Computed example of a mutant assay.
Amino acid sequence: MIHILGENNSLFNQFIAEIRDEVVQKDSLRFRRNLERVGEIFAYEISKQLEFKTEDVTTPLGVAKVPTLAQQPVLATILRAGLPLHQGLLNYFDQGENCFISAYRKYDEGGEFHIEFEYISSPSVEDKIVILSDPMLATGASMEIGYRALLEKGTPKHVHMVSVIASQEGVDYLKKHMPQNNYTLWIGAIDQEMTPKSYIVPGLGDAGDLAYGVKMDSKKKTHNR
């Protein structure tokens, strides 16, 4: 199941426009806040797919029966670019547990790269709902590696994958490599092109650099995500 929020006219698209805009991007604080706001909207939409239970809530005048979440999700993200988006999700799922995954593009001498997984800091995800976020879904490899890393901590009940901008290639990759009955993909917008270095076009650029500043490349040409 794939949900593309940008296909419907809403305030969501205003935030996407600002996230893409190279002029607005010069304000890193606003860029981070827009990613956070987008994360909040994703959280609201995902919540409609979750299980609820009815609770009795005592007010000063009586008792109200209110539907509340039956289970809080585990919120997982891929460092470092995913942090603002993760914060937006956490603002709404504020009682959820948290998971952080370190993965990056490791380049060889010829300029080719593969996604390298380093570590995961996570609670058990056994039989839990997981929301895995990464602002850009380019090749799809980072999201798949994030999912595989989660399996070290148990077997999730279901995984909701969240990206602000995706390439069609990345979406097709996940369709091919992910178990079809255990994930839902949530996308802001899908772009059709990628550069030879696997940057989405028109995309928005490097989300990590725009949020937290340009990183210095090491002599081994490793680029943190």
Results as ranks from 00 to 15, higher is better:
116 E>S: 10
116 E>R: 13
116 E>C: 07
116 E>N: 08
116 E>V: 10
117 F>R: 11
117 F>T: 12
117 F>A: 12
119 Y>G: 00
119 Y>R: 10
120 I>E: 03
120 I>Q: 10
120 I>S: 11
121 S>R: 15
122 S>T: 06
122 S>W: 06
122 S>H: 03
122 S>M: 03
123 P>D: 02
124 S>W: 00
124 S>I: 01
125 V>A: 01
125 V>W: 02
125 V>G: 04
125 V>Q: 03
126 E>T: 02
126 E>W: 00
127 D>E: 13
127 D>F: 00
127 D>C: 01
127 D>V: 00
128 K>Q: 10
129 I>R: 02
129 I>T: 14
129 I>L: 11
129 I>G: 01
130 V>H: 03
130 V>L: 04
132 L>F: 05
132 L>H: 01
133 S>E: 00
133 S>D: 01
133 S>M: 06
133 S>F: 00
133 S>N: 06
134 D>R: 06
134 D>V: 03
134 D>M: 01
135 P>K: 05
135 P>A: 08
136 M>A: 09
136 M>G: 10
136 M>T: 10
136 M>Q: 08
136 M>D: 06
137 L>M: 09
137 L>P: 13
138 A>H: 09
138 A>D: 09
139 T>R: 03
140 G>H: 07
141 A>W: 00
141 A>Q: 10
142 S>Y: 07
143 M>G: 08
143 M>Q: 10
143 M>E: 01
144 E>D: 04
144 E>L: 15
144 E>F: 08
144 E>P: 02
146 G>Y: 04
146 G>K: 02
146 G>S: 08
146 G>C: 06
147 Y>E: 08
147 Y>V: 09
147 Y>L: 11
147 Y>P: 07
148 R>T: 07
148 R>N: 13
148 R>A: 08
148 R>D: 09
148 R>E: 11
148 R>H: 13
149 A>F: 08
149 A>E: 06
149 A>P: 04
149 A>T: 06
149 A>C: 05
149 A>K: 04
149 A>R: 02
150 L>C: 04
150 L>S: 09
150 L>E: 04
150 L>K: 08
151 L>C: 10
151 L>E: 13
151 L>F: 04
151 L>Q: 15
151 L>V: 07
152 E>M: 09
152 E>L: 07
152 E>K: 12
152 E>T: 12
153 K>Q: 12
153 K>G: 00
153 K>E: 02
154 G>T: 06
154 G>H: 00
154 G>R: 05
154 G>F: 01
154 G>S: 05
155 T>P: 04
155 T>I: 15
156 P>A: 12
156 P>W: 11
156 P>G: 12
156 P>C: 11
157 K>E: 14
158 H>E: 14
159 V>G: 11
159 V>E: 12
159 V>M: 12
159 V>C: 15
159 V>S: 13
160 H>Y: 15
160 H>G: 11
162 V>Q: 08
162 V>Y: 12
162 V>M: 12
163 S>V: 14
163 S>R: 13
163 S>H: 13
163 S>A: 15
163 S>P: 12
163 S>K: 13
163 S>Q: 14
